[in-house]
């Protein structure tokens, strides 16, 4: 899928015979700039400016006593020595390691089931699985939050009516698992759709060939389908990694239901939010955000490299 980009081997960089004299060429270069200027202006304003500004902010420190001063990389040194930052990062890393494989596994299984054409009412099933994605995250979290309630919610009712004592999903030990469940519910359908659309573009001739060779369904899945959608798998994984590291809505909404289980530094995003909005530590918050951005980029990049290497080896 990505190999096509490499096929273009026209030697653009090298000067060709009959190049116009130097002066004309430099004028022509400026004409080119004119063409890309509108794009560059928007790109700079919308994409680069906020990043550059955050970096600029992160080099200062404003205090209640003493005002604003330039501190160089002090904020970054502090972030790297900040236990609360590492705790929150470790928490989302754990979330990533457990929730993402489960979510993608279920999504893949559903996509393969629908693609097998053996399901009755496959379209209805597909829509139903996808539906949670259309529910706003805040609403979804509130909905699940009420079910989790051990005094007033579904868990509470089950305990009361069946005489059980289920563990409280909103207790500090289980709350991350409960959030993982909500996120899985929300995004299985979305990832399923990515996989399913990738499955749909596999040429039918491959299946016919497999059938002629006497391959069973499992064989078709492992030898044709999975290799063919590897690109989609890598993309979905990268999006999920980014999503996990940026976890914010679900724990933030659940905080009011489980105030003692979800603190102000539950996830790195919540930490940055709390630092800037209630702590007035904008500079430190900017440093946290940038460190988090870099960590996310590195991990996403590593996954992409691994994914692509395997693909080119296949």
């Amino acid at each position: 899928m990505t190999a096509t980009a490499q096929s273009d081997s026209h030697p653009r960089g090298k000067p060709r015979a009959g190049d116009p004299p130097h002066r004309t060429r430099s004028r022509r270069r400026w004409v080119g700039v004119g063409f890309i200027a509108p794009f560059l202006a928007v790109f700079t304003l919308v994409f680069l400016a906020p990043i550059v500004y955050s970096i600029y902010l992160s080099l200062f420190r404003e205090r209640l006593i003493g005002g604003n001063s330039f501190v160089g990389f002090d904020n970054y040194v502090d972030v790297l020595n900040d236990d609360q930052f590492w705790t929150s990062l470790a928490r989302v890393a754990l979330f990533l390691a457990v929730q993402v494989p489960i979510m993608l596994g279920i999504a893949l299984a559903v996509a393969l089931a629908i693609d097998s054409r053996r399901l009755y009412a496959a379209n209805l099933f597909r829509i139903t699985v996808f539906l949670p994605y259309a529910v706003p995250a805040v609403v979804a979290t509130l909905m699940w939050g009420f079910m989790y309630g051990s005094r007033f919610g579904l868990v509470g009712s089950i305990n009361e009516n069946l005489g059980l004592s289920l563990p409280n999903p909103l207790s500090p030990d289980l709350v991350l698992l409960s959030i993982g469940n909500i996120v899985t519910w929300e995004f299985v359908g979305y990832n399923m759709l990515i996989f399913y659309s990738a499955l749909r573009v596999i040429p039918l001739s491959l299946y016919e060939a497999a059938e002629i060779d006497g391959a069973g369904q499992w064989r078709i899945i492992s030898a044709i389908k999975l290799p063919a959608i590897r690109g989609a798998l890598v993309v979905a994984t990268i999006f999920s990694i980014i999503g996990s590291f940026q976890l914010f809505n679900e724990p933030s909404v659940m905080q009011s239901l489980a105030p003692n289980a979800i603190g102000t530094y539950f996830t790195p995003n919540m930490y940055a939010y709390s630092l800037s909005f209630s702590g007035q530590q904008y500079n430190y918050s900017a440093a946290v955000a940038i460190v988090m951005g870099i960590v996310t980029m590195i991990i996403a990049y590593v996954v992409q490299l691994r994914g692509l290497r395997r693909e080119s080896a296949a």
Binding site: A137, F187, S240, G243, Q246, F248
Partner: peptide, 9 residues
């Protein structure tokens, strides 16, 4: 994935 989360943050 989770674009809403990203927008908020």
């Amino acid at each position: 994935s989770r674009s809403r989360t990203r927008h908020v943050s």
